[in-house]
Design a binder for these strands. Sequence first.
DNA 1: GAATAATTATTCGTCTACTAATTATTATGG
DNA 2: CCATAATAATTAGTAGACGAATAATTATTC
Lengths: 149, 149
Amino acid sequence: MTHHSDQRAYFFKIDITIKKIRNALQKRLLDAGFDLTVDQWVLIDHIYRQKGICQNELAELTFKDPPTVTRIVDLLQKKGLVERGPVEGDRRKFRLSLTKSGKGIYQKAFPIVAEIRRKGWGDLSEADYQHFVRIMDSIYQNFTDPKAV
Amino acid sequence: MTHHSDQRAYFFKIDITIKKIRNALQKRLLDAGFDLTVDQWVLIDHIYRQKGICQNELAELTFKDPPTVTRIVDLLQKKGLVERGPVEGDRRKFRLSLTKSGKGIYQKAFPIVAEIRRKGWGDLSEADYQHFVRIMDSIYQNFTDPKAV
DNA sequence: GAATAATTATTCGTCTACTAATTATTATGG
DNA sequence: CCATAATAATTAGTAGACGAATAATTATTC
């Protein structure tokens, strides 16, 4: 990366692209009649695929903070989509699971989410995907490795 | 993109990568003693480079909503870094500019931001940058074009 | 076994995102 | 010229991100 303007651009491009994706998915969910935010969907998706998961595991998987997970789970529980059950042997934890209503929402919303994913990726190729993964993982690792700046 | 898991992944990768970058930059600014959030920095950066810009222009350039810009400018004004001046001929607008203190902050913070940008891009090549731009722009456009899903 | 440390979830405070609605001002059309 | 529409900024409300601090429980250590 040689140009000064480019150095500014990659951060910016990632930022506006994720905003576009989130906004498109949010709008699509609302238009389809779902009372769900994108982040609420993300948690529902994880709980569906890993029934009984507890909140700190969910926080790790989704890269959200524990307080954020607490708040979103509270909302989902109020909406009757998620239940907190006891974990035998550890009274600090909750087993999270979808209610019948929650499973129904998941199954109805999934095709919409999949459609948005397909729409976003569009005509990009498998080779593009390899580039994409390599570049994003590289950036990520550059901020993860414990080497000094 | 052929695999089911991949379809889930690209959204996720963008999301966690931008979080990493933001968190790294935020931490670096705080460690260096700046009382600035990343978004506050973004506005300062734009105002420095385009003195007299008004808020709706700033909102467009940064892809933030007008209310968000209002709030961040309020904070920057309270901190004494930004001034709102009158626009001759249109009393709805404000001319935004950095105060002396704001310019000083900009000049001291800029090298830190540039360093974080370099660190994030790391060893990726110019060719990687071409791929990156093409892929991100494509995803962005797939949600921008007025063609139906 | 009791004191201490670590873990899990929560609460609080600040900041940002987005929508809808409001105010003030400017532009436009009849 | 006047009514109406459009624009710029703001306010209010809900949701999410993150840090710091707290409470309850579990694990560790002496």
